[in-house]
Amino acid sequence: MRAFDYTRAESLDQAAAALDPAASVIAGGTNLLDLMKLQVMTPERVVDITRLPGLDAIEPEGEGLRLGALVRNSDLAADPRIRARYPLLSRALLSGASGQIRNKATTGGNLLQRTRCPYFYDPAMACSKREPGAGCAAQGGVGRMLAIFGTSDACLAAHPSDMAVALRALDAEVEVRSRDGGLRRLALDELYRLPGDRPDLETTLAADDLITAVILPAPVAGSVQAYRKLRDRASYAFALVSVAAVIRMDQGRIGQAALAFGGVAPRPWRDAGLEAMLHGKTPDEALFREVAQRLTADPAPNPDTEFKRPLLRRTLVAVLREATGLAQPSIGTDATKDAA
């Protein structure tokens, strides 16, 4: 860890004023300190926002909910309103990290966590995400955790968040406060950039922007929600692939479907074309296979991740079977309920 100045922000204005490209916000710190210890991140100033008032609440917002940026992952997952109306979000959060980390990690921090590509994590390896233009040692390396969608020649990294995948399927928006105090809302695809030739630029946020909240719209009434995560052990591991689904059945047909995928792209991946293929159809395994086939039609950019195509395909079929009633739901597939 490089030496840095530590400051504790007392207000949002003060926090924003302290931020520039050489500074980092610290909240949960579970990923930032991890990376700082390895000198993958080397901020000169660390701005502690954990004591800012008002950012740790979950409050009604229209028909939906406003999740403060400092709400801990464990508190968010356990909130009765989330459990009842957005079970997918609880499930995704609870599939990530460990109990200890979820007690520390925040909503905002979870969104902004960095990739777990081992070449990004090792400063001895070339990485354009760490150092623009340095190249990508993961190309031709060992790449089990890498992405299969949305990559570029400069970067194969996948975004590791489970929470963000659920938020993508739930059409959440991120509330961002700019230095002048103005607020704007970004859909997740507006927040995250694809790597292109600048994989170091992961979001559209300015250095002095602060994420203040995540806004959940009203949940799809009467939907079944599912989060299924595949990993190299039963718990406490990042996703090889994950599937988030929100399905509303309408008289035996699929009335509405939202699907998002994790572990496979530099941001939570969503493909509207797939959802359109399902709309209005009667649940059918052959249809699900066709949808999954289309999702994974293109070869993986890296031979090491070729396995993710069949894995994602089969996981999606399994999730759709359960979410549409073709198969008995297993743990992770829940019917939404009215708020407690």
Binding site: R116, P118, M145, R233, S235, Y236, A237, F238
Partner: peptide, 11 residues
């Protein structure tokens, strides 16, 4: 220990 997976409790 995040990339070298030894069995966890859940396994």
């Amino acid at each position: 220990l995040a990339n070298y997976h030894i069995a966890s409790h859940a396994d």
